[in-house]
Amino acid sequence: MHTDGPGAASGGPREDTVATRCAVRREQLGLTREELAGRAGMSVAYLGQVESFSGDFDPAALMRLAAALEMPYDELVEGPREPAPGGQPAAPHPLLAQLPEGECWRRLGTHGVGRIGLSAVPTPVVLPVNFLVDGRTVVYRTEAGGAAAPAEGDQLAFEADHIDERLSRGWSVLITGTAEHITDPGTVASLSTQPGAQPWAGGKRDLWVRIRPGAVTGRTIETR
């Protein structure tokens, strides 16, 4: 039995949170955190963020996590429900299927809104950004020195998805890679004319950031 889940060291009762429900189910399946992260298509560090920030943080990642744990999405997010009088139909189970890298880029399209994950002190930050796809890279525009502005060479994560929470289906693409500041005036001018280039949040956005992918993974989520 694995002992790296919340509350394992003390042996005391566990608080009923996404993290503890995840840990209990993971132990039932005999999975390490690394194995669970691999099933769900995310890094171990990102798994920790998903567990900590819960349902309003990243529904797509939670849906992938529920599928990897072979449990209903609602049960992971909200906990087991009391059965209704007379019984009720079993909740549908989400199922994961991997997307080839080419299909990941097709799903991203040319532009849209996604989330970036950056390392920060004392905790990592995850922020929404509108993005463009430029070749096999993702670019976005932000304020130099702002919360969404990584340093040149920083490691970061990017995720975009299309999820129907009511039906527990959709898709999710996760990119991990390295930040690069775009300073070439011609490239900046070209990007600035693309559809979706204007920052949806408004304000001063004087820095273009390119994410050079290290890994591109995608999942479709269905229920059965």
Results as ranks from 00 to 15, higher is better:
2 H>N: 12
3 T>L: 08
6 P>I: 04
8 A>D: 14
12 G>C: 07
12 G>N: 05
13 P>H: 11
21 R>L: 05
22 C>H: 01
23 A>Q: 03
23 A>C: 04
24 V>S: 05
27 E>F: 04
28 Q>R: 07
37 A>G: 06
40 A>S: 14
40 A>N: 13
41 G>I: 04
41 G>W: 03
42 M>N: 01
43 S>D: 01
44 V>D: 00
48 G>I: 12
50 V>F: 03
51 E>S: 06
51 E>P: 03
51 E>T: 04
52 S>H: 06
52 S>D: 05
54 S>D: 13
55 G>M: 13
56 D>N: 05
60 A>E: 10
64 R>H: 08
67 A>D: 06
68 A>N: 06
68 A>Y: 05
73 Y>L: 14
74 D>E: 13
77 V>A: 04
79 G>R: 09
82 E>N: 02
83 P>K: 06
83 P>F: 01
92 P>L: 04
96 L>E: 11
96 L>F: 11
99 L>H: 02
101 E>H: 07
104 C>F: 06
105 W>L: 11
105 W>N: 11
109 G>R: 10
114 G>M: 10
115 R>Q: 15
118 L>D: 06
120 A>F: 02
121 V>D: 13
126 V>T: 15
126 V>Y: 08
128 P>Q: 10
131 F>R: 10
132 L>I: 06
133 V>F: 01
135 G>W: 00
136 R>Y: 09
139 V>S: 03
141 R>P: 03
146 G>L: 02
150 P>W: 00
153 G>Q: 13
156 L>N: 09
161 D>L: 00
161 D>I: 04
165 E>Y: 05
168 S>R: 14
173 V>A: 02
175 I>C: 08
175 I>N: 03
175 I>Y: 00
176 T>A: 01
177 G>M: 09
183 T>P: 01
184 D>K: 06
184 D>H: 08
187 T>M: 06
188 V>R: 14
191 L>V: 03
193 T>L: 10
194 Q>L: 12
195 P>R: 07
196 G>P: 11
205 R>E: 04
206 D>P: 07
206 D>V: 05
206 D>G: 10
208 W>F: 04
211 I>W: 01
212 R>Q: 13
213 P>E: 03
215 A>S: 10
218 G>L: 07
219 R>C: 12
220 T>K: 04
222 E>Y: 05
223 T>W: 07
